Computed example of a mutant assay.
Amino acid sequence: MKRILSALATAASIAGLALGAAGTANAETAPLPSPIYISEVSTADVNQQYIEIATTSAVPITLNTDVTVEATFRLDGAPVTLPLTIPANATFAPGTGYLIAFANANLPCANEVRPEILPVDKPIQVRLITGFTPFESATIPSYTNPMFAQHRTKLTPATFAPAPKSPCQFPYTPPAGTAPLPSPLYISEVSTADVNQQYIEIATTSAVPVTLNTDVTVEATFRLDGAPVTLPLTIPAGTTFAPGTGWVIAFANANLPCVSDIRPEILPVNTSIQVRLVGQAPFIFENATIQPYVNPMFAQHRTKLTPATFAPAPKSPCQFPYTPPAL
């Protein structure tokens, strides 16, 4: 299995890279390459050129819109852009990807084969675009060894390094010690201090509209009279998330017109609560401890994705579109 990701603790801008130029770090504006990202690009071997796109998603998803994959390079001094496409309804299970092969490449795993040949001695800019908005932009440096490809070594900023070619070697596994990216869903806001407006809000990091292909369990665990209690809540398969949207679970007396699910329970107001998002297997891809607080006008808001960090601030349920915090 390929080690294609490194530590995700530093967010940086990955948009707007010029050919041959590096991105500028900006933790406030860095978009997350979610739910798909450029994982490997092969150009030096004219007989096996490809662009491989992988997913950061922890649960199986279906794209609800086309994603344009733009490959831009210079040919005879003039810029050339190949507009490629990952079609709507393409599905991604965790650790899988989508492979675009070129001309002479003989790759049975290719999802699409293009007639063009990419330049072998020039950098290539690859962008992932939904609508007219790029959510991934990476400059792939030129290299000379035809046995190698450029592999993704860091998500943000988009960083690549040459290593032996390994197209379609799924599933991808992040390196040991790397915090998993909460994708495409994460815990965004939790309200407990006001017994009349308790809720758990789940938001999406996805840059494109997606549909969940499996249930996601939302576990809320706390102590009641000294004994642990776990409420198993569910975001059902078939739920669709557009960029910046979310899912709100309200409890007991809460009156929220935006609620996706209403539960009869009342959460404790004076104890910590552990909230986990659980996918298949089961696989826990979010695990956050929400600390108690006293102001009933406040909720605990997500301030950092990795590690999951919260801070009290005035309640603001369902105020979408919601922008993910920095990594």
Rank of each mutant, 00 (worst) to 15 (best):
A7S: 15
L8V: 11
G16F: 12
G16S: 10
A18R: 15
A21V: 12
P33G: 02
Y37V: 10
E40K: 09
V41H: 01
V46P: 04
A54Q: 05
T55M: 10
V59R: 09
A71C: 11
A78V: 12
T81N: 15
F92T: 01
F92I: 02
N106K: 14
V113R: 14
T130N: 15
T133C: 03
T139Q: 09
Y143A: 11
N145G: 09
T153L: 07
P157T: 06
A158M: 04
P162S: 11
P162Y: 07
K165E: 06
S166F: 02
P174K: 08
G177Y: 11
T178C: 12
S188Y: 02
I200Q: 06
I200N: 06
A203R: 02
T205W: 00
V208H: 02
L212M: 05
V216W: 01
T217L: 15
A227L: 10
P232N: 13
L233T: 05
T234P: 01
A242C: 01
V248D: 02
I249H: 02
I249Q: 03
A254P: 03
A254V: 07
L256Q: 04
P257H: 05
S260P: 03
R263G: 06
R263C: 04
P264M: 08
P268H: 11
R276E: 13
L277W: 01
Q291E: 11
Y293W: 09
M297T: 12
H301T: 03
L305G: 02
P314V: 06
Q319H: 10
Q319V: 11
Y322T: 08
A326T: 11
A326V: 04
